[in-house]
Nucleic acid binder design. Sequence first.
RNA 1: GAGGUUGUAGCUCAGUUGGUUAGAGCGUCUGAUUGUGGUUCAGAAGGUCGUGGGUUCGAGACCCAUCAUCCUCCCCA
Length: 455
Amino acid sequence: MKPSIPQGTRDFSAAVLRKRNFILQTIRSVFETYGFEPLETPAMENTETLMGKYGEEGDKLIFKILNNGLNNPDKREAVMQDFNAVLEGKTNKGITERALRYDLTIPFARYVAMHHGQLTLPFKRYQIQPVWRADRPQRGRYREFWQCDADVAGSAALLHEVELSLIYTNVFNKLNIPVEIHINNRKILGALATICGGEDMMIDITIAIDKLDKIGMEKVKDELIGKGLTMEQVDTVESFISISGSNEEKLVQLDELFGTIPGGQEGIAELRTILASVEKMNPSPQMVVDLSLARGLNYYTGTIFEVKALGVQMGSIGGGGRYDDLTGLFGVKGIAGVGISFGVDRIYDVMDELNAFPEGIQKGTTALFFNTGMEEQQHVLGVAENLRKSGIACEIYHEAAKFDKQFKYAERKNIPFVVIIGSKEMEAGTAIIKTLASGTQTEVRLDEMAKILAH
RNA sequence: GAGGUUGUAGCUCAGUUGGUUAGAGCGUCUGAUUGUGGUUCAGAAGGUCGUGGGUUCGAGACCCAUCAUCCUCCCCA
């Protein structure tokens, strides 16, 4: 058979992996400096843990795992019935008890709900793991991709929104990616819905205005009319998304529009507090109040974030927000949460396009020992072991091939030094170290090698 | 779920209105060179043209199906 991997998945070679690890380590170290602790959860969750949390579209994209033992003749009748339910579009424990995680937030909520008795609140955790979605792959979109999440559970303080904004800023500064952090508040969108046909219209309205960039004002209005809004209400929506200017100017106009609606007031006040706080920092995050930002995930209730890379055509490279009742879905009321996520794979694509990776992250082996014969090989084995004790990565060519071949091997693996110890050097207790970049070489005593190769 | 692109050597790709034995560059291997490569020169290996069917005297090329791929929409990171 022809070897292949599933659609939307990738193998990562050494060069790619070193760049990916650079991104992961940068994010991890920033998370740690803000006091977040690591957490890992299983690749699979119970299907019912995930279903119904991501909206109708999201549910369709969850990878479900077929149960084992369905061919057991004793269970044939039950399996047939369960399978018929699947054919009608229902998910069913009898067929798929487990599913691959779709994001890191719901598993986190499940974890908090399971362990809230033992956790010190607020609980700040970060999580760096792959997630899976049965999406059509395309540019910046994969079926297996990595997310880096930082969430806080058990605190309603706006301090967290401020610090999470700073985390975004610090990470993208370190990664050398120019970004805008778009921010909005679901309470404001809720207020808009309240005066435009009721709160249950919020999803329809936000989905429509989210498309403003792509389809334009007229089509947005058409869609709203299609959803049953009156002309007056559509006009209100239009004046809402027409709000422009600086962040402060936008907030002032919002005040005029929603000043009398309690939820709206609250949302505006929260935005104002967060922005005032982060703008005093140095470096100040590039925050943009984006009233068309809605985010599809159902569980957000307050602040919402989305990060866009500037100068590259790519969907958002990060997102997040506040959810006041996430663990409520798992029977534990009253634990508020807020969190952000980094999309590693898109960040990688952006950095690759912008050439933003620093020099010097491709280092692997430092020195290659040439193989000049069996006797020398035994001697070199000991020399290499000593170097490794000093933390120097080295390897020995596997056979006494022509130097030509050994040089090429070193070159292809980006190894900066070759060490040649032939019978003459073995006898004299020396080694020849050749720097490949310059072509210069010197003969040194064995006890001097570590110092030279360490630079 | 809807629409489109592409599929020829290990890699990147040529291949005319259908016409003999399908090509190039890079890479690989061998030699010029028995302990100093990268240049150069000479030579070699490597393809049932994604797969299956059809049209034709004749298909890499045309038609149908199928699989894979990349992209757009939907949605998202």
